[in-house]
Write a protein that binds this DNA or RNA. Structure first.
Lengths: 339, 339
DNA sequence: GCCGTCGATGATATCGCTATCATATTGTCA
DNA sequence: TGACAATATGATAGCGATATCATCGACGGC
């Protein structure tokens, strides 16, 4: 192998092949009008010298860093990893790279996000909830002319390209499932209030209740934060009372697992004494016992599509319409008919 | 706010402040020999124009992209996220950004990793297992003169800066714990064979067995792959036999949860009928019931320290000695004395 | 046979910044 | 007070690529 200790430049390649740098550049970028024979000679020189173009120099002149940012806040590892995998899957054969930019709280530092992105020199950004729903973030992004694609927004559908699932329909579906099992005393554990998805899911639940002529009890609606701990506490409050519900709708799996744990603490069997369902189909949903009945959220697909949309924009194409990915009700063992 | 649609350059700032670009550059980079009054004027111009230096241009001239790569293969989301959080925590106040580079199988594409890194234009790379243990990867990295820092290597301790935990001692400790509860019929579920940690942990187990004069049964050693599914299958094989073990040492938590599920399928109570312990203290360890007795692996700390070591190298400092972070035996409910 | 077009190549400016060196201006000490 | 160092600033040349424009043949049509 060529063991040169210093990286070779386009000039070295040009010299080795006996042509101008521009011609090398033409070959590199697959521009037309270079004779076959010359191309071969240049390609050989590139291999010989183990040449790889300097991405920074390319970026400087093309005004493009080939860096894509991914903004998220979600604390659930499996959600985050799915998100990243989806984005990376789309980037695999491109020369774009992914810079991860978790933000402690999008809500609190919405105005800082743009300068974070500018400092990171990304060409564009994929926004996961709740950043994808934040008006300030979107406004600043537009002011800074930074292309973006939104994952699972619930508001302002006209703003920028987006990929989503139908949160309302999904929530309605899982609530209807509980109702179909015969449950009428159904409690709800809501997610983080700053995430709009929690409102959308709540709406879906209410629609299902209305369809079944069941009126939800307000004192059975608990506020959580999409975390295991908040689910545990909410579960304790709901289940440790004489008039406890026969089923719990948790707005994500982590909280559902928390509620599961609360039931266990109180000696209640799931699903015999209380049914518990989640939302997301995160990894734990399959790992706990009983395995959670839940809604599979197409996180990977949404991330991949959003990344695709962003790339289209960066390459000068059009945004394309919002794309909705299908969800799926996964029936497992954590819910059954009430006794 | 300055609403200029085009980004301003250092030239604009220089013009606005009535100085040369070099002087602006000096202020930007905190070089000495600029009068207080001038500094203030330049800073004001920077704010006024909302100027942020072009990272690509800086990188081109400084031969530095300010990008750090993170290579990992581990399929466990909570491990990956911990790793990233640790690295990001250290990078928070630096101007380096993190590019995530998951690799399907380090073992299969060891030689491609360097060209992947060169294409990504990273200044250096943090290697998580098993890349941190792979001789080919390390050799190629050195040939390419790409600085690296290793997380949790088990071999070749002299190669490059590294942070680790004492896998052997940790494994010995958790095995000793099972022995101290009175278990003698102990099975083992091993992890991915290409990861050296699985050998180290096995060694630790054997040391504990030897200390207690217990000889391990070879037919109670199952091969897994650090995944839930492999743990489930191994658990089924181990527990569905007349001479089943009274305890299982799983080499990570995902497999331990799999074994837990297998026990449940077979109607065995944990820990009454069989004790199961894991390794890692990943998120699920606290979410399942019974919660897993396990070893807390200081992943976050190792990642943060490794990143720190890499940064030191990049800034011209020395590598520093290998650093060992303490692990911790976490006693929860999944293990008890045998009946 | 002349002009226009297209194909193939090279020379050079430029992207936005920093390094280097040159050039004042001031301060210090024998 | 002169010499020399230290401070303060600017002019200019790159970093390594690409874009633009110029150049030079070859070809085809009338």
């Amino acid at each position: 192998m060529a063991g040169g200790s210093k990286r070779s430049t386009i000039i070295d390649v040009a010299r080795a092949a006996g042509v101008s740098t521009k011609t090398v550049s033409r070959v590199l970028n697959r521009e037309p009008h270079v004779k076959r024979e010359l191309q071969d000679r240049i390609r050989a020189a590139i291999v010989e010298l183990n040449y790889q173009p300097n991405v920074l120099a390319q970026g400087l002149v093309r005004r493009r860093s080939h860096l894509i940012g991914l903004i998220y806040e979600n604390p659930s590892p499996s959600y985050v990893v799915e998100l990243q995998m989806g984005a990376l899957d789309r980037l695999k054969d491109e020369r774009y790279r992914l810079v991860v930019l978790p933000v402690g709280s999008v809500h609190e530092r919405a105005t800082e996000i743009v300068s974070l992105l500018r400092a990171a020199a990304v060409d564009g950004v994929v926004l996961a909830p709740p950043a994808s729903d934040h008006p300030v973030v979107l406004r600043e992004l537009e002011a800074a002319q930074l292309p973006y694609a939104r994952i699972a927004p619930t508001r302002m559908p006209e703003k920028g390209p987006s990929t989503s699932m139908d949160d309302v329909a999904a929530a309605r579906e899982i609530a209807r499932y509980l109702l179909s099992l015969g449950h009428r005393d159904i409690a709800i554990i809501k997610g983080e209030p700053t995430h709009c998805s929690s409102e959308a899911r709540l709406l879906g639940y209410s629609q299902a209740f209305a369809d079944a002529d069941v009126s939800p009890r307000l004192d059975w609606i608990e506020q959580g934060h999409y975390t295991f701990e908040s689910g545990l506490e909410a579960g304790r409050r709901l289940l440790d009372r004489p008039d406890r519900p026969s089923a719990i709708l948790a707005q994500n799996d982590d909280m559902a697992v928390g509620a599961l744990m609360a039931a266990r603490e109180l000696g209640l069997g799931v699903p015999e004494d209380v049914s518990i369902v989640g939302f997301d189909d995160s990894e734990v949903a399959r790992l706990v016992w009983p395995r959670l009945t839940t809604i599979r959220q197409p996180v990977f697909e949404m991330a991949a599509t959003a990344t695709s949309m962003l790339l289209d924009q960066l390459e000068g194409g059009s945004a394309g319409p919002a794309q909705v990915h299908p969800h799926e009700l996964l029936i497992r063992e954590s819910a059954a008919a009430p006794r």
